[in-house]
Amino acid sequence: MSFIDLIKTRRNTKSFKPDPISMDQLYEWLEAGTLAPNHRMTEPWEVLIVGDETRQKLNHKTNFHQAPLVLAVLSKDGRHDFETKENALATACFIQNFQLAAWAEEGVCTFWSSMGSSERNRDILGVPDNYDVIGLFGVGYPVEHVEPKTRIPIQQKVKQLP
C-alpha cells in the first residue's frame, strides 16, 4: 500500500474486536511516534497505559467502545506559552505517527476522546499540573472498516498569497 493510501484508509473506529494488542507491537508503534517533528527536540509527549481499575474510574459512556487497550497521551508544558503550544502540536504529530504505524503494521485503529482534559479525569489519571491531556485512545482491531466522511475539497482551503 502506498503511503497516500495508508493515510486515506486509516480511520478512527467505534467498534473493536476483543483481540489483545501485543505490548511489543505497541512499543514499536509508540517508538515510531517519537520520530515526529518537535520544536527544539523537546519530546514533550508522555504515554499512560490505562489499566482496568483506572478505566472503570474514568467511566467513559461507551467504555472506549470495548477497545482492548486504552492510552492517555500527555504533552508537557513549555517554558513559555508559545513553547507549550508547540509541544501540543508536536504531541499531535506523535499521535498521528503512532496511529499510522499501528494501521500500517497490523490494521489497528484508535478511538480518540478528549475526556481526559476534565479536572476529574486528570485527577484519576494522576496528570501533573505541568501537562495537558491531548487525548485518551481506545486501541484495537476494528470490527469493520469505516468509510471516510466527506471532506471539504482542499482547493477551498488553500489561499495563495502575493
Rank of each mutant, 00 (worst) to 15 (best):
F16M: 01
D24Q: 14
W29Q: 03
P18W: 05
K57P: 02
P44S: 11
L26Q: 04
L58N: 01
F16L: 00
V73E: 03
N63K: 14
N59E: 14
F64V: 01
E46R: 15
E43I: 13
F64A: 00
E46C: 09
M23C: 03
V50K: 04
L30E: 09
P68Q: 08
P68M: 09
V70A: 09
L58G: 01
V73L: 12
A32I: 03
G33A: 03
V47T: 14
E31H: 13
D52M: 12
E28T: 10
W29N: 01
A67D: 03
P37S: 09
L30K: 01
A67W: 00
L58M: 12
R55S: 12
I21L: 04
P20D: 10
D52T: 13
A36L: 08
A72K: 02
M23N: 12
M41P: 02
Q56N: 14
L30A: 03
T62K: 13
E43T: 13
A67S: 06
K61S: 14
W45V: 10
L71F: 12
P20T: 06
L35W: 15
S75T: 07
V73A: 02
A72M: 13
T62G: 05
L48P: 03
V73H: 03
G51L: 11
H65F: 15
Q66N: 14
L35V: 04
A72E: 05
F16I: 00
K57T: 12
S22Q: 10
R40V: 11
L69W: 08
K61M: 14
V47Q: 08
E43L: 10
S22W: 08
H65W: 15
Q56H: 14
Q56E: 15
P37R: 03
T42V: 12
Q66F: 10
R55L: 15
P20R: 03
D24T: 12
M23A: 13
D24P: 07
L74R: 07
N38L: 09
H39W: 14
N38M: 13
P20M: 02
A67E: 00
K17G: 00
S75V: 10
F64L: 08
L48S: 02
P68T: 06
D24W: 02
Q66S: 13
M23W: 07
T54E: 07
P20S: 07
L30T: 01
